[in-house]
Lab assay of single mutants.
Amino acid sequence: TGEEYIAVGDFTAQQVGDLTFKKGEILLVIEKKPDGWWIAKDAKGNEGLVPRTYLEPYS
């Protein structure tokens, strides 16, 4: 389980392990790392690192 967040901007993977997403996408945050990069999963089940500055809590 995780917390749902909504993307407030588009993000394109910079390196292997990053997750590309579009503004408005709902992501499930699995782990919040202290460096500001969180592990998240998208609706298709893809998992990767995302920058927390692009996310806001979804309710």
Rank of each mutant, 00 (worst) to 15 (best):
G48P: 00
I26T: 05
K32S: 04
V16W: 11
T1Y: 14
D35V: 04
A40S: 03
L27R: 00
Y58D: 04
A43R: 11
K44M: 14
I26P: 03
V16F: 13
W37N: 05
S59K: 15
L28Q: 08
G24C: 06
L55I: 12
V50T: 03
E56V: 14
Y5E: 00
G2Y: 14
V29C: 03
K23H: 07
K41M: 09
G36L: 07
T20E: 08
S59P: 07
L55C: 02
D35E: 08
G24Q: 03
T1H: 12
V16Q: 11
E56L: 14
T20C: 05
I6R: 11
W38R: 01
S59M: 10
L49D: 03
P57V: 09
R52M: 15
L27Y: 02
L49M: 08
F21M: 05
K23R: 13
V29T: 02
G9K: 15
A7G: 05
V29Y: 01
F21Y: 03
K44P: 03
K44R: 14
K32L: 04
T12E: 12
D35L: 06
K23L: 08
T53G: 09
A7E: 00
Y54W: 09
F11Q: 03
L28S: 06
N46S: 08
A13M: 07
W37Q: 06
T12H: 13
L19W: 02
A40M: 12
G24A: 04
T53A: 14
N46K: 09
E47T: 14
Y5H: 05
D10T: 08
F11V: 05
E4N: 15
D35M: 05
V29P: 01
Y5S: 01
G24R: 03
D42M: 02
G45C: 06
Y58P: 04
G17Q: 07
D18G: 15
D18T: 15
G36C: 07
A13N: 04
N46W: 05
Q15T: 14
V50D: 00
L19V: 03
L49I: 10
S59I: 12
R52I: 10
K22E: 06
D10E: 06
G9D: 13
Y5C: 03
G2F: 14
S59E: 09
Y5M: 05
Q15C: 09
E56C: 13
K32H: 05
D10I: 02
E4H: 15
P57S: 07
E56R: 15
E3K: 10
V50N: 00
Q15R: 15
T53N: 11
A43T: 12
E4T: 15
Y54R: 08
N46E: 11
A13R: 07
E3A: 11
L49R: 14
I39L: 13
G2C: 09
E3C: 08
E47K: 10
E25V: 06
N46R: 11
K41I: 10
T20P: 13
K33G: 11
G45A: 05
V29L: 05
F21W: 02
L55Q: 00
D35C: 07
N46L: 10
Y54M: 13
N46Q: 11
Y54S: 08
T53P: 06
L49N: 12
T12P: 05
E31A: 11
D18K: 15
D18I: 15
Y5Q: 01
G48E: 00
A7K: 00
V29S: 01
K33E: 04
T12I: 11
G9T: 14
D42Y: 01
L19D: 00
W38H: 02
G17M: 06
K23I: 08
T12K: 09
I30R: 06
R52C: 11
A43S: 14
E31V: 11
Y54H: 14
T1D: 14
P51F: 14
T1L: 12
A13Y: 03
A13P: 06
Y5N: 02
E31W: 12
T53C: 12
K44Y: 13
T12D: 13
A43Q: 13
E4A: 15
V50G: 01
G48I: 02
Q14A: 12
S59T: 15
P57T: 07
T12W: 13
K22S: 10
E3H: 13
V8W: 05
D42V: 02
E56T: 13
A43N: 10
A43E: 10
I26D: 01
Y58R: 09
L28Y: 14
K23P: 02
Q14I: 13
D10M: 04
D18C: 12
D42F: 02
L49Q: 11
L19R: 01
K33W: 09
V16C: 08
S59N: 10
Y58G: 05
Y58K: 10
L28T: 11
I30W: 05
T20W: 04
V50F: 01
K41E: 04
T12A: 08
G24L: 03
D18N: 13
D10R: 03
F21G: 02
Y54K: 12
R52K: 13
E31L: 13
A7P: 01
E4C: 12
V8N: 09
K41R: 15
I39H: 11
L55A: 01
W38P: 00
K41H: 08
G2M: 13
K22I: 06
